[in-house]
């Protein structure tokens, strides 16, 4: 772990990795989407609208996975004081919020032809909307604390309060996951569980491609944003030193 504590070491790995993740991810997304749009059969009940699943499910997974990673980064930041943990947490927030929004939007579009409604306040949809607001809160908090500190500084501008917010917000994750089991909801129960999948393999298989593709692409975006924060930090540090010398 501490091999990456040095930002220079991290950058020597992140620089070549970024384009690989990006293009590999994009290729897998396009392949999965093409297969899901044109090759797989329609669902017996939902018809063609089931094809929205190939983007809705990866978006849900990354929206929730993003916050899990931010919570882990916050823990690492507070306990081990790892200099890159805050940078990572802050870099995840924007793509995490994006995927949560995509999950909500595609779910809404999917709900209209299948359930007969754009939006209902059921447990799953409400808790997912809460996650989106949590992301907005984190982004605003991180920005405000960086501004107050007069620059990005250590931890990528993620103050202790922001890190604690990421940890506390993680409470929402098991609630989202269990919402369709605990409460009578319009959203169906989980299809893919530890015991197997209730989605027939003829419909399921492109989902693996888009899941993998969006995850790699998410990684590429996080690396880009981390590199941007580190470079910006370097600029700020240099300018500050120059001002002191002058």
């Amino acid at each position: 772990m501490h091999a990456f504590a040095n930002p220079a070491k991290f950058l020597s790995l992140a620089r070549p990795l970024t384009p690989w993740l990006f293009w590999l991810g994009l290729t897998l997304i396009l392949a999965g989407a093409a297969c899901g749009l044109f090759l797989t059969p329609a669902d017996y009940l939902q018809g063609d609208s089931v094809r929205i699943m190939y983007i809705h499910v990866p978006a849900a997974w990354l929206g929730m996975g993003g916050w899990s990673s931010m919570a882990i980064a916050a823990l690492v930041q507070m306990v081990w004081r790892h200099p890159l943990a805050g940078v990572a947490g802050r870099a995840i927030a924007v793509p995490g919020a994006l995927f949560t929004a995509i999950c909500l939007a595609t779910g809404s579009i999917w709900g209209r032809p299948t359930w007969g409604t754009w939006w209902e306040w059921d447990g799953r949809m409400t808790s997912m909307l809460v996650l989106l607001f949590l992301y907005f809160g984190y982004i605003a908090l991180a920005r405000a604390s960086a501004e107050q500190a007069g620059g990005i500084g250590d931890n990528g501008g993620v103050s202790r309060v922001t890190a604690i917010f990421a940890l506390v917000g993680a409470v929402n994750l098991p609630i989202i996951n269990r919402s369709v089991v605990w409460w009578n909801s319009l959203h169906q129960g989980p299809s893919i569980t530890m015991r197997g999948s209730t989605i027939d393999s003829a419909i399921l298989w492109p989902l693996g491609l888009t899941m993998m593709g969006f995850s790699l692409w998410f990684g590429a975006i996080v690396l880009m944003r981390m590199r941007a924060i580190l470079a910006q930090n370097k600029v700020e540090a240099r300018l500050a030193r120059r001002a002191r010398e002058a």
Binding site: P41, D43, Y44, Q46, T114, Q188, S191, T198, I199, D200
Partner: peptide, 16 residues
């Protein structure tokens, strides 16, 4: 108002 609720099973038409 009526809303349709489907379950977690997804399968091709031939398998209905």
């Amino acid at each position: 108002n009526l809303l349709a609720k489907h379950d977690e099973r997804y399968m091709p038409r031939e398998m209905e």
